[in-house]
Simulated assay, not measured.
Amino acid sequence: MAFELTGKLIVKEDTVKISDRFQKREFVIDVPNEKNPEWNDTIKFQITQDRVDLIEPFNIGEDVKVAFNIRGKKWERDGRVNYFTNLEAWKIDKAGGGAGNAPSGAPMPDQLEELPPEEGGDDFPF
């Protein structure tokens, strides 16, 4: 299931290479709160793999429309259970229209092959 949000780009992080097979990049948009216009919602997204450059053409302060999926994972180690939720962006446009910058013919994120968990270390699986 895909979702969309429109807001002002306020943070654009650098790409982080997690392993030889996985990289990610995070960005944040400020979204007006419909119930209380005095309080905006600050929403963090991640983009992964070959999509990490999707945010590159956009500048801080620019209004963007983000198409994304919600991803959740259960992670267990040494008897501890954690749950993680990520907003996985797969398309970013200028707010108000314009051409998308997702690679032409790119598969939707739910069509991508999932990577196996990394072995060893105490790092979280993202």
Rank of each mutant, 00 (worst) to 15 (best):
F58W: 05
P32C: 05
L9G: 03
K74Q: 13
E113D: 13
N36L: 08
I10P: 04
G98E: 04
E13N: 15
F3E: 10
Q111M: 12
Y83D: 03
D53Y: 09
M108P: 00
F124Q: 09
D20R: 12
L112G: 00
N40R: 09
S104G: 07
V31R: 07
G100V: 01
V64K: 09
D14T: 10
F27A: 10
P125Q: 11
M1C: 12
K44R: 15
I10N: 04
E26T: 14
K74L: 11
D78I: 03
E56C: 03
D41F: 05
E119D: 13
G97W: 00
G97I: 01
I47Y: 03
D14K: 14
R21N: 15
F84M: 13
D20G: 14
K17I: 12
G97T: 00
P116F: 01
G121P: 04
D53S: 15
R77F: 11
P103F: 04
V16P: 01
V66T: 09
E13V: 00
K73C: 02
G61W: 06
F45H: 05
K24P: 01
L5Y: 09
V66E: 09
I29G: 08
A99F: 00
I60P: 03
T85C: 10
F126P: 02
G97C: 06
D30I: 02
L87Y: 15
L87V: 05
P103T: 06
N40P: 06
G98C: 07
V81P: 07
Q111P: 01
R80T: 12
F68T: 02
D14W: 01
W39I: 15
R80A: 12
L87E: 04
N86E: 09
K24F: 10
D14S: 13
G100F: 01
P57D: 04
E38H: 04
G96R: 05
V64I: 15
A89H: 04
I60A: 08
P109L: 08
W39F: 12
P57H: 04
F84H: 10
V64Y: 03
P107L: 14
V81S: 14
L115T: 06
V66C: 07
P32W: 07
L5P: 01
A106W: 02
N36P: 00
A67Y: 10
A99H: 00
G100Q: 02
K24E: 14
N69W: 06
F124E: 15
P107G: 11
K73A: 13
E4S: 15
A99N: 05
V31E: 08
V52N: 12
R77Y: 10
D20S: 14
P103Q: 13
I29L: 05
Y83I: 13
P117T: 06
P117A: 06
A2S: 13
Q23E: 15
